[in-house]
Design a protein around this nucleic acid. Sequence first.
DNA 1: CGCGTTTACGTCGTTCGTAACGATA
DNA 2: TATCGTTACGAACGACGTAAACGCG
Lengths: 335, 335
Amino acid sequence: MTLQQLKYLVAIADSGLNITAAAERLYTSQPGISKQLKLLEQELGVQLFTRKGKSLAAITPAGRDVIGRARRIMREAENIRSLASDLSGEQDGTLSIATTHTQARHVLPEVIKAFRERYPKINLELHQGTSEQIAELVAANRVDFAIATGSRQLFPGLVLLPCFRWDRIILVPNGHPLTGGNKKLTLSVLAGYPLVTYVFGTTGESSLKKAFAEQGLEPNVVFTARDADIIKTYVRMGMGVGIVAPMAYECQDQKDLTAISAAGLFPRVTTWLGFRRDAVLRRYMVEFVTLFAPQLTPQLTRQAAQLPTQAEVDALFDEEALPLRVGCEEGQERL
Amino acid sequence: MTLQQLKYLVAIADSGLNITAAAERLYTSQPGISKQLKLLEQELGVQLFTRKGKSLAAITPAGRDVIGRARRIMREAENIRSLASDLSGEQDGTLSIATTHTQARHVLPEVIKAFRERYPKINLELHQGTSEQIAELVAANRVDFAIATGSRQLFPGLVLLPCFRWDRIILVPNGHPLTGGNKKLTLSVLAGYPLVTYVFGTTGESSLKKAFAEQGLEPNVVFTARDADIIKTYVRMGMGVGIVAPMAYECQDQKDLTAISAAGLFPRVTTWLGFRRDAVLRRYMVEFVTLFAPQLTPQLTRQAAQLPTQAEVDALFDEEALPLRVGCEEGQERL
DNA sequence: CGCGTTTACGTCGTTCGTAACGATA
DNA sequence: TATCGTTACGAACGACGTAAACGCG
């Protein structure tokens, strides 16, 4: 049994049991893969795949178990290599992040700008998706970091670092009846207006629906979208009142949109950054975390990474002490 | 990087940084090890050891991390081999158990006898030690199973299967004032006698001390020992009243010793069997578990082994439904 | 007959052991 | 000088790629 053989095995599994495809993926010859697989099966004395004629038809139960463990080995080997290139001071590498639209569009740009200046040679990959898609990418070890809001239970086995908290804001066209602060904004007032907000379903956003339900109110949601840009467009059109993340309210929006803080109306949410507990954190990764959330110093991040359970990670942080994110201050009204 | 190189690396670390010793341990030549280590360091671009002259002086921080991950890889590779030999129906292998004296002396003999008949070719290793020593052996992956009573928090990361429960018994010479059941046995009555019992310190036994303390009593412990044989000897000598596990009261003891159940006086304790969560359970291992605790069927054991947390394992079992162990029924009095 | 796997074979690189050398205490 | 690690070298092995054969749809 060699690392090579295990790598081949995993590649075959990842190529739909097509040895030729696995060979291409690994830039090597097909007979080589075939032979090493046979040698591995011979050494182990177990069929890892069922054959139909000469082709591989399915993975045997034994094969599934072996492949799973082989994946772990490959991951750990990758970790060793990664760790080593970090310590030998190499400045190349990749930082792969999966996140939601709000972060990618309104928070990450300036973070990434600073990061690129600091580490110009690091290859950056940004994947945008729903919480579920992010969870998938993380589980498959396709990304280094996941950044999302709420829905922590979707990400078992990750180290989740709280980064900042925020309260939703209400977006209305300038001069809207809700502006001016002459009457107190409550959920029941809000329920009287048509609402435009994020797609429900992800845990973070459905907490909004729950807030209404707890007061026996049924919000009149006339439009849902995945990103704030679309929501703002429809708010401008007068379709309804927007409920968005404060980061989405930029100063240029004050020309035609007024933001009203919804602090107190809905539960405050926490944006966190997560990574696999067994992953190697290269220097540039840790530094990225600090750029994203300054209170997460490199020492703190590394300390959290070594804790065996999320409960212990949580104990490191005082939720009340987390920075509170707001959007453009101008043109924004308090409750 | 090859599995071979990682194996050599771990062997060097385990041989006190002595390459020659590592070579002997691996039945290979010393220059081979030396060269592979150099190749590995070269490929990784990191010094794994600090050199003093030509000798290895210490492990670098990078080396410690790499070695740790190498160990994981070696363990997983071992798991693959083990899994494969099990599935290919090989009847050789080793079962290594770490346990306490009580289990080794009074419970395991008949279990092991049955196991040997079923699997005569399996090599059995039994290590007796304190809870702390057992925890060490398990952590170092030196044993397959740990069997102990109480003190679960000493064994993080293990799958702990509850096997049976038991109540301590009071051992006195025949005709002792405590026999006959003419007066109700209470802790305060017991506190009036000199006591002979197990060494305190292990969590399981100190619960005994706590039971006294909760009633404001200070037990008069005149002698502590690690095993029941010694305790029985001193009880026979009239040194005091013994408090032992019921399994230690054998039928031949009734000639000169009377056992009184202490159910209700002290908390009931649970004996469990534990193994590493990521370990491969070979067929004979699972069958051993069933021999040791019949309610732990092979299916149940394998199911528990796949659960990610101990909490979920615990949820599989109803503590009240666990078998209750008693010693020799004859010559034993109820409270 | 195309697609995919296995077999055959020649080449090349790697590993391994022996032996000699070097350094350190 | 004994101990331990490195260097040198030759033999053997093993991996890889090309080419050809085989089986299946």
